[in-house]
Design a protein around this nucleic acid. Sequence first.
DNA 1: CGATTTCCGTACCGATCGATATGGTAGCGT
DNA 2: ACGCTACCATATCGATCGGTACGGAAATCG
Lengths: 193, 193
Amino acid sequence: MTGRPRAFDFDEALERAMRVFWRHGYEGTALSDLTAAMGVNRPSLYAAYGNKEALFLRCLERYHRGPARHAREALAEPTARAVAEHLLRGTVEVVTREEGPGCLLVHGALATGPGAEGVRAESAARRAAHREALRARFEQAALAGEFPPGTDPGVLADHLAALTYGLAVQATEGAPPDRLHLIAAHALRGWPH
Amino acid sequence: MTGRPRAFDFDEALERAMRVFWRHGYEGTALSDLTAAMGVNRPSLYAAYGNKEALFLRCLERYHRGPARHAREALAEPTARAVAEHLLRGTVEVVTREEGPGCLLVHGALATGPGAEGVRAESAARRAAHREALRARFEQAALAGEFPPGTDPGVLADHLAALTYGLAVQATEGAPPDRLHLIAAHALRGWPH
DNA sequence: CGATTTCCGTACCGATCGATATGGTAGCGT
DNA sequence: ACGCTACCATATCGATCGGTACGGAAATCG
């Protein structure tokens, strides 16, 4: 029943796997890269996490609750403008980390071959889910009268999300945080009021 | 000296290769996918284009002069505002094509494994070069007094570029053109004046 | 027509891909 | 101390990766 316990830390190994995917994307990461970074042998990896795809999906979930936490927390800000500020500022912080520039949700599996349709679709679905949450939050703000008449909360959410994706793309090229912060600040200057 | 001529059209085969890369990215595309789509045998492909990496770089060049032509042409517009309009409108058109949603320059090689560093770097360099051209154009517009004082043309260019990248990302998820056009229109509403 | 040059098609190369079979053993419960 | 269980390590699986060697055929030249 209760045999030998595993010799590695499940969560810590998952964290390391996430960083490898974060750097090189799903298809750019080989299993040997993962085992080397995680300090886990191949059969142990399969026993603990399933397979490469399942491991990536677990990493997405971990990313969601870890580095991308700001995206959820931003929704709790009192005003739509504060939501946008929080989201943009947090995004810049995350995508310019030295360990892995960019956003796992954006470039982890943006365009893939036929063998990675699943992870691509799941990544896209998570991005869409966040945009939807953002839209709902702005819908609420619209009811509270925070926007001038004629403002579409859905468009606002899509626009803001597009901006965060663009920040992530530029971060992968090594754009420094202050430059991305300037973009974010400039975008906020055009916020509806 | 002059032997048997090749049995396929060089440019047309290149066009087809570009579309495959466009859909699946560099690492998501196998050589067998390319030969199948191009109607060219493997040795002929190597004889004509070099190798996979060289073929991709040729596709980038073709993309630059074909589908992404609007990005250059936009710079010729008389005002900065018209440049932005042209660029955004053209971007939406290109990234929502049915044959291959998204932008080859963005998701062709955004995050890669160690075997694709070259194509990743070249893609990033091309994006950066376009941003630089955009910055220079806005610099010129600033001298012409098109912006209110305190406006940084470089930030403006980065902001606009980030938006186009974000449009490309959302397009890969199947966002319809009209939705992206709404984002673009909304962004233009915040243009400095 | 013959000679030469280049291309096409098959078949194959070593390397690496993701995923496993197998045996030895460390650890827990009794 | 013993037996059972589950983990670790090596070695390997078939498939596919990008890239080529080689022989036969097609087209242009003299």
